[in-house]
Amino acid sequence: MILDYRAFDTFGESNVLFVATITVLVLLHFNKKQSKAVSETQEISKRQAKEAALDRSFEPKNDPILQCVAKFLVPLILIFGIYVVLNGHLSPGGGFSGGAIMGAGLILYLNAFGFEKTERFFTEKTYKWISFAALTTYCLCKTYSFYCGANHLESHIPLGIPGHILSSGLILILNICVGCVVTCTMYTFYVMFRKGDF
């Protein structure tokens, strides 16, 4: 439903998420650079450092229980998220729910193993490219008919048998795009609020 005749609505939602992430990135990044450039009084910076150290002391550092649980749970959560995304047109679920599940899995991995492990495969650049590619694909899939002069409600992709995984034309592709955007957004929000930087 949300990806068929309300697809432009969903496109707008994805863009809202994207814009919100960019704004958060701008706000928290900019602050860091500014506070470095402007030399504050020593007392305040000392207090800030103390508070930051206090914050850090509550974070799990190489916690064996968390790591052991995460080792089992993270692949299961990620696979379940992918299942929800891919079955979005057949069952309850879809891009948003699946993306949120995958984002939660990534956050659990990050909490268990620290930033060094996740920075090997997910940095600001990754976020930028995945979001850009997903949004562009979504946009092209839904607006190509504007440029070809055809009625976009008709689909050229064979519809297949209802109930099979390749049975709904564009909706599978759109679900995957939305799932990518939501996963990246969840993870980026968490990283930005936790560390203020990638």
Partner: peptide, 10 residues
Amino acid sequence: VSVSALMLSL
């Protein structure tokens, strides 16, 4: 979700 994130960062 977007609005909350924006407000919290502000």
